[in-house]
């Protein structure tokens, strides 16, 4: 459970308009979205992996969501019909929303996006490639080793007087 001393963002800080789309629409727009918001996405994922703390990556996450919203608004303005047809094809052509059965509608959507919005579809494995991201956020330092104030500075000498054990001591074999 979470104690009172743990800082949590307030409800107002967490209140952002989320992307209200179902999975075929998200999948249909995923490649162009990833290309459009590449810097924001990389920044957020790097923050998330480095800090391991969702509170510190809240602003980056908000930037990601707003970029996504902007992208889908642009799609709705320019290529709404093509986008809808592509998403419906993905939804209804196969069980696993495969791109393979929807190459025709995908080509129509891609040409529309290239002509009207100006985003070219990256090649099929573009987001599986590792890439280096340069960021202005300082890298979090590794945790310092713990300090024990009552620890002995150096081990005691070997010839300190030793008391015989009070309760007969341990047996030999244990």
């Amino acid at each position: 459970m979470i104690t009172k001393g743990k800082e949590l963002p307030t409800y107002e800080e967490l209140e952002v308009q989320d992307v209200n789309l179902s999975s075929p629409f998200l999948k249909a727009g995923s490649f162009h979205l990833g290309k459009q918001c590449e810097a924001e996405n990389n920044e957020f994922m790097l923050c998330r992996l480095e800090e391991k703390d969702p509170r510190k990556c809240l602003n980056e996450g908000k930037v990601v969501t707003s970029c996504t919203m902007k992208f889908f608004q642009a799609v709705k303005r320019s290529c709404a019909e093509e986008f809808y047809n592509f998403a419906m094809c993905l939804d209804k052509s196969s069980q696993d929303m495969s791109f393979d059965t929807c190459r025709k509608t995908q080509t129509i959507f891609d040409t529309c996006m290239k002509e009207k919005v100006g985003i070219e579809r990256p090649h099929f494995g573009y987001f599986c490639e590792p890439r280096v991201h340069a960021t202005a956020r300082p890298q979090p330092m590794p945790e310092l080793p713990p300090v024990f104030p009552d620890a002995l500075v150096e081990p005691p000498p070997d010839d300190i007087p030793r008391q015989p054990s009070r309760h007969q001591g341990r047996p030999i074999f244990f």
Partner: peptide
């Protein structure tokens, strides 16, 4: 690749 492109947005939410 499609899933990885969507991942940051879903994680942020």
């Amino acid at each position: 690749a499609s899933r990885l492109a969507l991942q940051p947005m879903l994680y942020a939410e």
